[in-house]
Amino acid sequence: MKRRVIVAAVAAVVATVVTTVAAAGCGQQSQAGGGSFPSRNVEIMVPAAAGGGWDLTARSMQQVLKAGKLVDRPVEVYNVAGAGGTVGLSQLVNKGKGDSHQWMMTGLVMVGAIEQNKSAADLTEVTPIATLTAEPEVVVVPGKSRYRDLKTLLDDLAANPAAIKWGGGSVGGTDHLVVGLLAKAAGVQPRQIQYVGYSGGGEAKAGLLSGDVMAGVSGVSEFQPLIASGELRALAVTGPKGVTVAGKQVPSVKEAGFDVELMNWRALVAAPGISDADTQAVARIIDRMHASPEWQETLKRQGWEDFYRSGPQAREFIAAETTRIKALIGELGLA
């Protein structure tokens, strides 16, 4: 009886949703046709739970690929969460070998997680296709803090590393890496920093507002509303150049006098051991996706910074980041 109720109600809801979507989507028509590579469904693995950044990127890609008819076959997205993405990575390496239809989202976070979890599989084993987006990190202090620029903060850190309590995302994640790099630039052993890892952006913001921590690091979009309202003050961003956050010019860490640059990038990789021809076929599709107006529209709507590098450039970039982050994780005492 319960089943019948559920099925009936589900059917009703499906019907409604489908009608709505169909009505909303029928304005978009196709342009380009796909290549000859796909011989079956393409599967994009999100090595994290639904709702996160990787998940959103993958599902947006799925929509753009579908809307532009860039792949002849259906594109599926599925989640394999666990251990900073390394569970998904090892699944791709072990089960997907040689299959050009198996793609995976990845990013800076996974590089750290590989090291931290002593993962057997490595990001250099898979086939890099392209880096897609990147977001700079921002260093903030509460609005009533006495720190007005990065230099004063890091000078105090250098004088007494234990005096500055840092807050950010989980231990070993991008935010923690930034603090480690800043410490190094200030001449402090990364191991000595006092870092409180929070799960999720909400908690870290709460920690800054309540005064638990004195300085925070996270993605620019995460802190933007509180910077705009003056609850938080942005000291520097970790990108190559300064940016305007909430109407205020914020210098890059480099411009503030410390040689640190770190972008939280996301990339698409394919299974290891696929032929050069297939790799190029996949890369062509992603090139076309990147050039499509739908993708540009997605970037704009999500506030993602375009960080497109494909082919050998992507390979070199991922390899260089792997080397750098591995060393840093060790210096932070996490490996």
């Binding site: 909400g202 913001k205 509303p225 309202s229 609850e231």
Partner: peptide, 26 residues
């Protein structure tokens, strides 16, 4: 304050931002 304090709130925050709505003091 723009602070998501549960998994659902975090997802809703993401939704807000996609529609260009910034939860927070303003």
């Amino acid at each position: 304050l723009g602070l998501p304090t549960s998994a659902t709130a975090a997802v809703m925050l993401a939704a807000f931002q996609i529609f260009n709505v910034q939860p927070g003091p303003q």
